[in-house]
């Protein structure tokens, strides 16, 4: 749930999402769910020349499994907190595995 928890804090931030088919989309993260499906608003497709069919798309729902990267605004990430959250997650997982 770490990533879900993490992405929830990024709602209404501008992120760039790179899909596994190399399309990169920049938009406002509207919401995310536990499958890391992503809803984007005010979408801009980078390399629009390559993907003209996306030129009229203004918002989209991206299935979590097709996302390769999510590029985040650095200022919106609390690294220390994220490290701690990661530790907790690891501890939780270890606890579950045992």
């Amino acid at each position: 749930m770490l990533f879900f928890s993490f992405f929830k804090t990024l709602t209404n931030q501008t992120v760039t999402i790179e899909l596994k088919n190399d399309i990169r989309i920049r938009g406002t993260l509207k919401s995310v769910d536990q499958y890391l499906n992503i809803k984007l608003d005010d979408v801009d497709v980078l390399d629009l020349d390559k993907y003209p069919h996306l030129s009229s798309v203004k918002n989209m729902f991206i299935r979590g499994s097709v996302v390769r990267y999510v590029m985040l605004p650095r200022s919106e990430v609390d690294i220390g907190l994220l490290e701690d959250a990661t530790r907790r997650e690891a501890a939780n997982q270890a606890g579950k595995a045992r």
Partner: peptide, 19 residues
């Protein structure tokens, strides 16, 4: 807190109890 630690603390710190 265990499941949603980052979000919970982050919203407390940054004061964004949006959800």
């Amino acid at each position: 807190l265990a499941e949603d630690f980052y979000y919970q603390v982050y919203s407390q710190i940054r004061g964004a109890p949006r959800q």
